[in-house]
């Protein structure tokens, strides 16, 4: 994640803590895209992703004095985003339905898949069938482009656990997509 320059983040955080709340805008501009996409892939619905992203930034601002500068800012705010997404999904009836598989059928005919939007919808639906642990590692790896080590930092788990969780999640996703006639 070379685009995430830790020093810039540290400077912005310091300015915020010194009373310049406008400096937080630098962090919002820098992280709004990855945080929004993380929430979108975790929750599927753009409106939900928007709400969660807003909450993430406001909570980060409110809790900025509890941020430990020994760690990288991106791992701290990603962790907030993951926790917020998980909390949001717990409150969301819609996602409960997806997780239990009630409303999302795994079986679909190949003829249905001829549009990019349809493919995106299918992939999003397949991801939403994963448990939150699996969903998180898939999103961090494939949509936020984090390394194993960065994922370990964000999730606060050993790198070895990240790998086994990611590989299992990918296997599960492969099964779901193949049952739906995608990704063969």
């Amino acid at each position: 994640m070379s685009l995430l320059k830790a020093q810039d983040d540290a400077d912005a955080v310091r300015e915020c803590l010194a009373g310049n709340s406008e400096a937080f805008g630098v962090l919002v501009k820098k992280y709004q895209q990855p945080i929004y996409n993380l929430a979108l892939r975790m929750l599927r619905e753009p409106e939900d992703a928007m709400d969660v992203s807003q909450t993430v930034f406001i909570k980060a601002f409110e809790k900025l004095d509890s941020y430990n500068p020994a760690h990288r800012f991106f791992s701290w705010i990603y962790r907030i985003a993951i926790n917020e997404s998980i909390n949001f999904s717990k409150r969301s009836k819609r996602l409960d339905e997806y997780e239990s598989g009630v409303s999302a059928s795994e079986e679909m005919t190949p003829e249905d898949r001829y549009r990019d939007e349809a493919l995106e919808e299918e992939v999003s639906a397949a991801i939403s069938l994963l448990t939150m642990d699996y969903r998180t590692v898939i999103v961090l790896k494939h949509y936020n482009d984090l390394s194993y080590q960065e994922m370990a930092e964000v999730l606060d788990i050993p790198e070895k656990t990240v790998k086994s969780r990611l590989f299992s999640a990918r296997q599960r996703l492969k099964d779901i997509l193949q049952k739906r006639g995608i990704g063969r």
Binding site: Q32, Q33, P34, I35, Y36, N37, L40, P46, M50, S53, L119, E120, V123, S124, I127, I138, H142, Y143, L173, L177, I182, G183
Partner: peptide, 11 residues
């Protein structure tokens, strides 16, 4: 397939 889904701009 997963990677073919592009990230979108934040609103």
């Amino acid at each position: 397939t997963i990677n073919s889904i592009r990230n979108v701009d934040a609103p």
